[in-house]
Design a protein around this nucleic acid. Structure first.
Length: 270
DNA sequence: CACGGATCCTGATGGC
DNA sequence: TGCCATCAGGATCCGT
């Protein structure tokens, strides 16, 4: 479900509420992606300092250590008081003095991991190979160009891999490539500098717009206040196969790349 | 080292 | 309360 914008929207929706809270208890449901990643005893009595984001990971800083959350394909968080008993797909509850942070994740591709420090091996195994933050200062055209030079795979798949630039998932990869006028199948290292500049700008623009719109709600995404996003209402190509391109009217095409669907306009993207 | 495929899991959807 | 195949916003592991 969540790509960078959805994770960021989630973060913004509960960070102010949980900041400064004391952890009272934690309860676990079914195992998530790394079932041994967390023990409630690591958390109880700790204070929540700050909630950050790295790629699609949420980093909850505690006074000693940090909690890494990943929403996988189908995860979402809710932060509220007086929640009902955990349901079938509620797999992690963090009870604090200011409310309960609850992870709901039907497919259980998400993760909850505790690390004593961000520099520890357990955290670095997850964070260590991540690419540059697309909304940060370090993401510029030269950096992207350089990152693409060693990659001969299709640009769409290189974007999804997340080791050059993080956070661009299946929706926004198609959208950014449309905005940049680039065919998703183009080999990454064959893109000219001017085209990489367009791509870099498109990635920034698309992600920033999506954050502003509250993310995309294709099936079930909502932020930690239970609110849906609206970005999908203006998707240019994603999930629009057969429908007319909003720019030129040509039917949008759908192809498979690495078992994932890709959408593009055969006229606007070369 | 980079690439492509298989894989984890559950639910929704559409064809028959 | 049909059955089966396919698909879904992610990321890791493994053989090549």
């Amino acid at each position: 479900m969540p790509e960078l914008p959805e994770v960021e929207v989630t973060r913004l929706s509960f960070a102010p509420g949980i900041r400064g809270a004391t952890i009272l208890s934690a309860t676990l449901g079914k195992p998530l992606r790394w079932p041994l990643g967390i023990q409630p005893s690591h958390l109880i009595g700790q204070q929540v300092m700050e909630v950050r984001r790295r790629g699609k990971y949420l980093l909850i800083d505690l006074n000693e250590g940090l909690l890494l959350l990943h929403l996988g394909m189908s995860g979402s968080l809710i932060f509220a008081s007086g929640l009902a008993e955990p349901g079938k797909h509620d797999h992690f509850d963090l009870h604090t003095s200011q409310g309960t942070l609850r992870l709901n994740d039907p497919r259980r591709f998400g993760a909850v991991v505790f690390a004593p420090q961000e520099s520890d091996a357990v955290a670095q195994k997850l964070l260590g190979k991540l690419g540059v933050e697309p909304l940060g200062e370090d993401f510029d055209a030269p950096a992207l160009y350089q990152g693409l030079q060693q990659r001969k795979a299709a640009i769409k798949q290189v974007l999804l891999a997340g080791d050059v630039v993080v956070g661009v998932g299946n929706i926004y990869a198609s959208e950014a490539l449309f905005m940049a006028g680039i065919r998703p199948t183009t080999r990454a290292n064959r893109l000219s500098r001017p085209r990489v500049l367009r791509l870099q700008q498109a990635i920034r623009t698309v992600l920033a717009q999506a954050v502003k719109k509250g993310g995309s709600t294709l099936r079930d995404f909502s932020n930690a206040q239970g609110e849906s996003g609206h970005f999908q209402l203006e998707a240019m190509v994603y999930a629009r196969q057969g429908e007319p391109c909003r720019v030129c009217g040509t039917p949008i095409k759908s192809i498979k790349q690495g078992q994932r669907s890709t959408f593009f306009c055969p006229q606007c993207q070369k």
